[in-house]
């Protein structure tokens, strides 16, 4: 689009008001200046027209984070009854170029809310996650889509595939928790038992990957199971002579829980491991392990 004079000859552009006391003259890209001057003029009279829509597109091309423009564009789209599926394509192109822009994702959500049709959403999000499997915006939006349109059924398979690809993807582990525990259908005990086995296998693959450790402790707490069920796993890792601060840390949790029930032997064992972590295997977190040790000593 160019800012052809004949389309705009009835509009008096409003130049930039840079607030009181501007310190220097303006000399930036003239196309953008011109577009913004027209924008100020037509938004002031709330013009909702084809040319206004095109103008917003032009400004967005320059500056997709200009949130006021997006808001205005939305009002024009709805007033003119535009085909929102075409707008989904437009916003898709924008997100492809700016996948971490808040305005774009929210714009898409508003469109889909209005369309009441999420059929294009998961394939679209999958594409984005294919480029960056940890994109926070994409995941948050995905959760909204799944919850709003009740698309729980295939989500665990999707998460499985992502974890097969990258077992260190913390976003995928979080999505796993979301899929299982935010689902209106609650997981059965049998399912949870299988789930714990699944995570244990993943931990064995990468004992120094914090994500499944956090996750398994999370589901143990959520389902009121005992942290002691992880003792075998921790010992197995230890026996393989793999140095895993996370496995050792989990042993500290286990021994602390037993020390709280009165076991002095476990208390001593826990104190010993805290010292090893602080002095040898996780020195960057020395102070944390010393803190855990103080707690154990006080029991």
């Amino acid at each position: 689009m160019t800012l052809e004079a004949e389309v705009w000859n009835d509009i008096t552009p409003i130049p930039q008001d840079d607030g009181p006391d501007p310190l220097a003259p303006i000399a930036y890209d003239t196309e953008y200046t011109k577009a913004m001057d027209y924008f100020r003029a037509i938004s002031q009279k709330d013009e909702r027209s084809e040319r206004a829509l095109e103008l917003t597109e032009k400004i967005i091309e320059y500056n997709p984070a200009h949130y006021t423009i997006w808001h205005y564009r939305q009002q024009i789209l709805f007033s003119l009854n535009k085909n929102l599926y075409e707008e989904l394509e437009f916003v898709k192109d924008q997100i492809d170029n700016n996948p971490k822009n808040y305005q774009l994702w929210h714009h898409r959500q508003v469109l889909v809310e209005k369309l009441k049709d999420a059929s294009r959403e998961l394939p679209f999000i999958n594409e984005i996650l294919n480029d960056d499997a940890k994109n926070y915006h994409a995941w948050t939006y995905r959760q909204w889509v799944i919850r709003t349109f009740n698309l729980w059924d295939d989500e665990l398979d999707f998460v499985n595939k992502l974890l097969d690809k990258d077992v260190r993807n913390n976003s995928a582990w979080n999505q796993r928790y979301f899929t299982i525990f935010f689902n209106p259908t609650k997981p059965t005990d049998e399912f949870l038992a299988q789930e714990i086995d699944y995570v244990i296998e993943k931990i064995k693959m990468t004992p120094n990957n914090i994500s499944p450790w956090n996750y398994i402790k999370g589901i143990i707490a959520k389902s009121n199971k005992d942290i002691n069920i992880l003792e075998g796993l921790c010992k197995e890792i230890e026996e393989q002579n793999i140095i895993s601060p996370h496995a050792l840390g989990c042993l500290v949790d286990i021994y602390e829980s037993r020390a709280r029930n009165g076991s002095t032997a476990d208390k001593e064992e826990g104190i010993k491991i805290c010292a090893i972590l602080a002095e040898k295997h996780d020195t960057i977190r020395k102070k944390y392990w010393e803190y855990r040790k103080v707690i154990l000593v006080s029991l």
Binding site: T140, Q143, N170, N174, Y177, G218
Partner: peptide, 16 residues
Amino acid sequence: KNFDGGFGSSPGAESH
């Protein structure tokens, strides 16, 4: 608030 003790942008969103 999440299972790992952290917080996210909306209920269920990853701790950040």
